[in-house]
Amino acid sequence: MSVADTPGRVRDWLIAGSPVLLALALGVFPLVTLFVESIGPGLGGENYAEVLSPLYRGALLYSIGVGVGVTAVCLAVAYPITYWIAHRCPDRYRLVALVAVTLPLWLNYVVLNYAWVWILARGGVVNRILVGSGVLDSSLDLLYNNVSMGIGFVYIYLPYVVLTMYVSMERLDYRLITAARDLGASDYRVFLDIVLPRTLPGAAAATLIVYARIAGAFATPEILGSPGNIMIARLVVQAFRQYTNYGFAAALSFVFLLLVLGSLALGALSPRVRRELRQW
C-alpha cells in the first residue's frame, strides 16, 4: 500500500482469515449441511411438509411468540433501568450500579433457572411466606407454566439487554431532555420524542442479541416451563437424541431459522429503525 504499511494486504487477509474461517466453518457450513439434510435423499419435500403440519406449526409460533414477548418485557424493564443509571445515578455509584445489574451475565443460566425452582415451588420461598403470613390458606402452583418460564427468561436475558441499551442511553444527551421539558413536554412526550428515538439503536441491538436465543432456548423451558407447551429446541433435541430423524430436525431447524431471521428483518425494514441503525 505505501511505505507506511509495507506488509500490506496479504498479512491482513491472514489475520482476518483465522476468525473468519472459524465463523464460516462453524456458522455457515453447518447451516449448509442442515439444508442439504433437510431436503433429504431424493430431494423430496416430505420433511418440510411434516414441519408445516399443525402440531409443529404450533410449536414454531409458540417459540416465536415467547421470543417476542420476553424481548419486549426485557426492553420495557431495561428502559427505566438504563435511564436511571445513565442520567440519575450519582457519578461515583454509576459503575457499581451497572456492574450490579449485569453481574448475572457471568453466571450459569442452568443454575440460575434452577434457583427459581426453589422460589416458586409448592414448598418454595414464595408459598412459604404467603402461607406462613396467613395471606393464603394453601400453596399455589407457581411453577411449570408460562409465567415461571417467562421469569426465568427475563432473569437470564435482562442483563444482556441492559448492558447493550446502556451504551445508547449513555450517549443520549441529557440536555435534550432538559430542552424538551423547557419547551413544555410532559414525561410521556419526552420519552416518546427524545428518549425513544435516540435510544432505538440500542434497543435494536439488544433485540438482535437476545431474541433469537430466547426463541431457540432449551434449558429454561425444560426447567421452568410447562411440559405441555413445546418450544422448538425440545423438538430438535428430541429428534437429534432419540429419534435420530435428522432430516426432519434439519427441516424444522431451517424453517425456524428463516422465521427468526424473517421476524428480525421485519423489524429492521421499518424505515425508522433502519435510519437509526445506521448510526451504529
Binding site: L31, L257, V260
Partner: peptide, 28 residues
C-alpha cells in the same frame, strides 16, 4: 465492505438461534 462482512460473519452466533447452530455443528 470486506470489514463489514467480516463483522457480520463473526456476529453469526448472536442472531442465529443457538439450538440451530448447535444441531448444525453436531451434524457437520
Amino acid at each position: 465492505t470486506v470489514r463489514r462482512s467480516i463483522a457480520v460473519v463473526i456476529a453469526l452466533p448472536l442472531f442465529v438461534p443457538t439450538v440451530v447452530v448447535a444441531f448444525g455443528i453436531g451434524r457437520a
